[in-house]
Design a protein around this nucleic acid. Structure first.
Length: 350
DNA sequence: AAGAATGATTGATG
DNA sequence: CATCAATCATTCTT
């Protein structure tokens, strides 16, 4: 950061930057330079740059909006700074000439030595340069505040777009048994949602915690997204039997649409349905994942009754009662939600 | 305006 | 280093 302090402030136009090595002033100048406030004039491009950034953003608007906003504010500060500085210089010069004229007039009636004049001018300049220093200081302060307000992304955060949250939720609920996307998956999601990878990580971190915190709140969302992904995957199949699995009116928690007497039984029936819909052939891993999501939807809905209300012993999927997802033992093991917390691996599927 | 939702940060932990 | 848990600060919803 202290790289280009080479030609710093030998003179800034007015050039009454004092000879005394004032470290404070040096620091202020350095910072203003580094921040681009007192740097090269940079054309009149403040608005142009902001507009270009905003225009070029197009799809990736999340990051550049903050930046353009920040830059706009910064250029505003810069403008004020330059205006004030110029004003001060002008005032200084005017005042100096004024005093000089006065002295010259007085020199007729009084002998005034040039030393005295010099001293007067020096006093005036010192006075004005102290004012300049105040200006610089306040400008630095403003820049610091601006930085802390805009570069600290915690402030002025923007919610992700609806589409992005949908994509993230789809991934989360379709990988509910192990919602830990790999780096590649994170990159993919980031690209799809036009957010950064760390944002994806943040989102998953928050989601995991908050899902685990109270699963009840996420019930409808869970089976909604699970069903949605399942339908999306096997779109042709679900059309015919829309009565059975349509989540179009599942509101207000009443388990009417999804009420099922025996979870295992319904799971089986759904499975058969799924397999049936797919005309044989490619019944590979793809169908498996669909079954997975469907199973999640079903089990979630099934466990809605009151298992997790008072007692938090309802642990769906790999979710451990102690917390933490803990690797799912088998890719295909069905953890029936109606069972007690004791038996986790009910392997016998019938 | 109050409270919920939400994205980001921080400190602890293994 | 990634994750969890708590917390902050903003935005959305009522």
């Amino acid at each position: 950061m202290a790289g280009r302090s080479a030609l710093v402030a030998p003179d800034i136009r007015g050039a009454q930057e004092e000879d005394p090595p004032d470290p404070q002033l040096m620091r202020l100048d350095n910072m203003l330079l580094a921040e681009g406030v007192s740097g090269p004039e940079k054309g009149g491009g403040s608005a142009a740059a902001a507009a270009a950034a905003a225009a070029a953003a197009g799809g990736a608007s999340d990051n550049s909006i903050e930046h353009s906003d920040y830059r706009a504010k910064l250029s505003q500060i810069r403008q004020i700074y330059h205006t004030e500085l110029e004003k001060y210089e002008q005032a200084c010069n005017e005042f100096t000439t004024h005093v000089m004229n006065l002295l010259r007039e007085q020199s007729r009636t009084r002998p005034i030595s040039p030393k005295e004049i010099e001293r007067m001018v020096g006093i005036i300049h010192r006075k004005f340069s102290s004012i300049q220093m105040q200006l610089k200081q306040s400008t630095c302060e403003a820049v610091m505040i601006l930085r802390s307000r805009f570069l600290d992304a915690r402030r002025k955060r923007r919610n992700f777009s609806k589409q992005a949250t949908e994509i993230l939720n789809e991934y989360f609920y379709s990988h509910l048994s192990n919602p830990y996307p790999s780096e590649e998956a994170k990159e993919e999601l980031a690209k799809k949602c036009s957010i950064t990878v760390s944002q994806v990580s943040n989102w998953f971190g928050n989601k995991r915690i908050r899902y685990k915190k109270n699963i009840g709140k996420f019930q409808e969302e869970a089976n909604l997204y699970a069903a949605k992904t399942a339908v999306t995957a096997a779109h042709a199949a679900a059309v015919q039997n829309s009565q059975a699995s349509s989540p179009s009116t599942p509101n207000s928690g009443s388990s009417g649409s999804f009420s099922l007497p025996n979870s295992g039984d319904l799971f089986m029936s759904m499975s058969t349905l799924n397999g049936d819909s797919y005309p044989g052939a490619q019944v590979g891993a793809g169908v498996q994942s669909q079954v997975d999501t469907l199973r999640h939807a079903i089990s979630q809905t099934a466990g809605y009754s009151e298992a997790m209300r008072g007692h938090s012993l309802y642990s769906p999927h790999g979710l451990n009662t102690n917390g933490g997802w803990q690797d799912e033992p088998a890719p295909c093991s069905v953890t029936s939600p109606t069972e007690g917390p004791g038996s986790v691996n009910s392997d016998t599927s019938n």
